[in-house]
Nucleic acid binder design. Structure first.
Lengths: 343, 343
DNA sequence: GATTAGCACTCAAAAGTCCAGAGTGCTAAC
DNA sequence: GTTAGCACTCTGGACTTTTGAGTGCTAATC
């Protein structure tokens, strides 16, 4: 990947990228020599830039404008320049100061986290909730609301709650409901929700279900609570991208908002980041969603205990303050992991 | 309010408003005579329009543009022209087709409703959830997750669920938790959450709390679940307003998004609609939020049984298709009321 | 007396023109 | 290898012109 760039080219590439990140304007040879401590004349810089353009790191929007970094340049920047230690520190206090998670349930915490990410990065914050299936079963509870209406509440070990309103055909007695949940709590204790699902299927075919109709009905009810398992995504700070000059044009903006309205595109992207651990960076063409809109994603997985369960991150323009945002995402992911572990 | 407009002026005012709603361009005398079946010459229409301007129903952005309806005109339109029966029907099938509420809990239903409203109106849909305090207490449940971690779950009669993670200082035994919830369920049965709150305060001062420490602790725990009672607001379809030509300019757009990011402004506005029953219309200057952004709100209260509990509605530009949206809001409110009643 | 035709006038938006500035590539000198 | 110099290019902003929709007024008409 290193493609033998000389130290000088690297330095100049870095200068171009950082100027562009700061101004969102194509940057020219002159500007660089002024704003960076490079003891070269503009003419020399021009030569180097021409080479970099040749190699595909830069493009000029038209003959006589400055040059703009390509996705390839950003990738190189992130991998070879930033990782060499140019990451900024010191947002940790800000993050800690902003987060108040006390007494919230898991979903609220994650929602709050997306807000936190967007506020500290000033781009969009995104959090994908753990797949419910990954949680460990803790308890099921049936609350009778009316003669034919039951509220089923499923609680996981980590405190996530899923509830569902169920209309029943026959009336079920309160005491039967209690017996049912006792059945189930014993049967399902310690399994993950995914395992629970399998187990229910098994049991429904079992001898016991055949002669014990109450048991059978219990299985059926509990299956309903497990019904859907769409992952939730929390997205916050859309308004932030309005401030990015590259999206000033209305048509562009509309496209972006429309794209992010469909959370499934976003889900696909986040799903991919689940595959590897730690911080990952998707730049432009890495994903259909991002490519179209000229955006990047900095994502990190987070865990409960030792299981990777979800992804959180920041979405911004490719021209994003990577040096600042990467540590933010990294730190936040660790914070959430720690939080979920204690729980 | 009728301010003696002649039938002809009314007709012309209506024409101006409807043209403007359709095109978002100032409308001139010529345009009207062409697009409406009015057997008058442009010159005559001009005279009438001049009168209407005098009366404050129209303004011209500048000398030689057409004219634009004022808020006053919209109000007149909504009250005196539309209510005379120009409401369109026939969105009911679309609404019914789009809504799938089966098996969702209350919050999900309301969220889905805001989506429904925005999709059918093509403006923004907004739903304010019932104040939790208005719900009737049904049951409280404590689930022990760890030695010092308890999940408290509060269920209302209508199936709304509120849960809270609580860190305790001393460990509480499972069986004590069961006794606690039994206490509370008996004590609080049939009260509204608001009453529950008062009752808890009373009880905490009582004799019993003084000598029965378990009881006292139960009270304290349950108080925590009641902690916050911020009303939830679901807002959907922000992207829709991007399509409105009057907001094409980026600065305007940004303003709007920022304004709606702070849900408290929205809450204030919606709170006001709670005061009266049925469909209400706020146009521009009626509210600080709307005035600034040139928007209107069509809202309706909805109920559970016979209690007004929440508000839902549509927010769009003042130049909004009132004739279409009013019935949508009305019908949706009734739909939700019916749904919550059965529950 | 209400309605209409005619006309001079106004103004904003669109199209056209011009200019300055930033930038480039190339060549020749250092 | 580096740099100075120069001719060339292109965009964006300022300024002007044109166009067209619309107005208000007056005088003629129904």
């Amino acid at each position: 990947m290193d493609e033998q760039l000389t130290a000088r080219s690297k330095q100049i590439l870095q200068a171009v990228i950082e100027d562009y990140i700061a101004t969102a304007e194509p940057v020219g040879s002159r500007t660089i020599t002024r704003s960076h401590p490079i003891s070269l004349s503009p003419a020399t810089v021009r030569n180097v830039m021409a080479d970099l353009e040749e190699m595909g790191f830069l493009v000029s929007p038209h003959t006589s404008a400055g040059r703009v970094p390509t996705d390839k340049a950003y990738r190189f920047y992130v991998n070879s320049i930033l990782s060499a230690g140019n990451l900024q520190q010191g947002n940790q206090e800000e993050i800690l100061k902003r987060c108040n998670f006390t007494g919230k349930d898991v979903d609220d915490v994650l929602k709050e986290t997306s807000r936190l990410l967007s506020a500290t990065s000033s781009y969009m914050g995104v959090v994908m909730a753990p797949r419910f299936a990954a949680h460990v079963y803790r308890q099921i509870e049936f609350v009778k609301l009316g003669s034919h209406r039951i509220l089923a509440i499923l609680v996981s070990q980590s405190g996530a709650v899923q509830n569902r309103l169920i209309q029943t055909e026959q009336e079920i007695l309160q005491e039967d409901l209690v017996r049912m949940s006792n059945y189930l709590n014993e049967l399902l204790h310690g399994l993950t929700i995914a395992q629970v699902r399998e187990r229910l299927l098994q049991e429904m075919q079992s001898e016991k279900a055949r002669y014990d109709s109450l048991f059978a009905r219990a299985l059926k009810l509990s299956e309903e609570v497990l019904g859907d398992d769409d992952r939730e995504v929390f997205l916050d700070g859309q308004a932030n991208i309005l401030d990015q000059p590259e999206f000033a044009d209305t048509a562009k903006m509309r496209e972006i908002f429309r794209a992010f309205e469909q959370k499934n595109l976003l889900l696909d992207l986040l799903d991919r980041s689940l595959e590897a651990e730690g911080v990952q960076i998707f730049i432009g063409a890495d994903s259909p969603l991002l490519r179209m809109e000229g955006m990047s994603l900095i994502a990190s997985t987070y865990m409960t205990g030792k299981d990777t369960v979800g992804v959180l991150g920041v979405i911004g323009p490719t021209r994003m303050g990577y040096g600042k945002v990467i540590p933010i995402v990294d730190y936040t992911a660790k914070l959430i992991s720690r939080l979920l572990e204690v729980e």
